[in-house]
Amino acid sequence: MLRSIRTRLRDWIVVADPEERIEGSGEAIADPQHRRSPAATRELDRLRAAHNDHRDDRE
């Protein structure tokens, strides 16, 4: 019984083809909130300003 559990667990964890593994730089992945590109940050700032202007116009 333990042998079958261990076998199932190993088959579940192991990658069949090591070439299919995802390779990365080895650096820690930062919070997505801090990985925005400068263009995305500018667009968010523009949208925030437009939203605030629209809100101010309604008051």
Score class of each variant (00 low, 15 high):
8 R>S: 11
36 R>F: 06
20 E>L: 09
44 L>M: 13
27 E>T: 11
25 S>Y: 02
11 D>I: 08
19 E>L: 07
4 S>H: 09
51 H>N: 07
43 E>P: 01
32 P>L: 03
51 H>G: 08
56 D>K: 02
47 L>H: 01
34 H>K: 13
2 L>S: 15
51 H>Q: 09
9 L>Q: 04
37 S>H: 06
12 W>T: 10
40 A>G: 13
55 R>M: 04
47 L>Q: 05
49 A>V: 00
46 R>H: 05
3 R>C: 06
29 I>K: 08
58 R>I: 03
16 A>W: 02
40 A>P: 04
35 R>F: 05
57 D>K: 05
27 E>S: 14
17 D>C: 06
20 E>Y: 00
18 P>I: 00
19 E>Q: 12
56 D>W: 03
39 A>T: 14
8 R>A: 13
19 E>V: 10
21 R>K: 10
18 P>V: 02
58 R>W: 06
2 L>H: 14
52 N>R: 02
11 D>S: 11
55 R>Y: 01
34 H>G: 08
48 R>Q: 01
5 I>F: 11
5 I>H: 11
25 S>W: 00
9 L>H: 02
54 H>Q: 01
15 V>G: 09
47 L>D: 02
53 D>V: 00
3 R>M: 11
57 D>Q: 04
6 R>Q: 15
28 A>G: 07
5 I>V: 14
4 S>N: 14
29 I>G: 03
41 T>E: 14
12 W>H: 12
28 A>I: 10
14 V>S: 14
29 I>D: 07
15 V>Y: 03
48 R>H: 03
28 A>C: 06
30 A>Y: 08
44 L>I: 07
32 P>I: 07
50 A>E: 03
19 E>S: 11
13 I>S: 06
34 H>V: 14
5 I>W: 10
39 A>Q: 14
59 E>D: 07
2 L>C: 15
12 W>D: 11
9 L>W: 07
1 M>I: 12
47 L>S: 02
27 E>M: 09
54 H>C: 02
29 I>V: 12
56 D>T: 00
22 I>G: 09
18 P>T: 06
20 E>C: 03
43 E>A: 13
13 I>M: 10
42 R>V: 08
48 R>G: 06
8 R>F: 11
17 D>S: 07
17 D>R: 10
58 R>S: 02
11 D>C: 05
29 I>W: 00
48 R>A: 00
6 R>P: 03
5 I>S: 10
25 S>G: 00
22 I>C: 04
28 A>L: 09
17 D>H: 02
25 S>L: 07
38 P>E: 05
3 R>V: 09
19 E>H: 05
31 D>I: 09
45 D>C: 03
24 G>I: 04
40 A>S: 15
11 D>R: 03
8 R>K: 13
48 R>L: 04
40 A>W: 04
53 D>F: 01
22 I>N: 12
49 A>Q: 00
39 A>P: 08
11 D>F: 09
35 R>D: 13
21 R>Y: 04
5 I>K: 07
53 D>W: 05
14 V>F: 05
32 P>G: 08
59 E>W: 02
30 A>D: 13
14 V>N: 13
29 I>S: 09
20 E>S: 12
11 D>N: 10
51 H>T: 05
14 V>R: 12
30 A>L: 15
3 R>F: 11
3 R>N: 14
44 L>N: 10
14 V>G: 04
12 W>S: 11
37 S>G: 09
44 L>Y: 04
23 E>M: 10
29 I>Y: 01
35 R>H: 07
54 H>V: 01
